[in-house]
């Protein structure tokens, strides 16, 4: 069996190579409720991370995985860089819930990968677009258990604009987000 290729950091110099001008607008073959997922990424001292590559992958509004790509780019996939304030924004549609092979229900969620200088491996997680009491049966929510930790993965609706979901990510220390491995 061949050995896995080890991971290495994306480094500080990737913006010209990996960032697409419209990479923050996620494409789908159909329609759905347009939403924006936005927030900031912080390090262990609370300083914004201004050089992170932030990638998202999600189901469509019906909870289906649109793995095709007849458009300019693959459906369901978003990719941006954080800015000097550590902020990112993904314009997308509200993903539907979906079902796993054992019949388990996955709450509306977006899979996220964060790459950056100082990250020797990607940080992967899932952000939930539903409140705590609606995600309790989700496989990851059940694996985490502790509501305080689970809250680090819940995006909150902006009271002034219900189409905007806010999710800040702390990589280390107080309020550290839950990250996953497969």
């Amino acid at each position: 069996m061949p050995k896995l290729t080890p991971s290495q950091t994306v480094g500080p110099f990737f913006a010209r190579e990996l960032i697409w001008p419209d990479g923050g607008t996620v494409l789908f073959p159909g329609h759905g409720e347009r939403i924006t997922l936005t927030g900031r990424v912080f390090d262990g001292t609370g300083a914004p991370i201004f050089d992170a590559l932030f990638e998202t992958w999600q189901a469509d509004a019906a909870g289906k995985v649109s793995s095709g790509g007849e458009g300019a780019r693959p459906y369901g996939y978003g990719r941006v860089s954080t800015n000097t304030e550590g902020a990112y924004a993904i314009e997308t549609v509200m993903p539907g819930a979906f079902t796993g092979p054992g019949g388990e229900t996955y709450a509306p969620q977006i899979s996220v990968s964060i790459f950056a200088r100082g990250l020797l491996k990607a940080l992967q997680t899932r952000v939930f677009l539903a409140p705590l009491d609606e995600i309790k049966g989700d496989p990851l929510a059940r694996a985490i258990g502790d509501p305080a930790r689970l809250r680090t993965l819940i995006a909150t609706r902006d009271p002034g604009n219900p189409r905007v979901y806010r999710w800040d990510v702390r990589l280390r220390g107080a309020g550290e987000a839950v990250f996953i491995e497969f």
Binding site: T99, G100, S111, E181
Partner: peptide, 8 residues
């Protein structure tokens, strides 16, 4: 936290 990959 180790989880199985979702269908997604």
């Amino acid at each position: 936290v180790r989880v199985a990959p979702s269908p997604l």
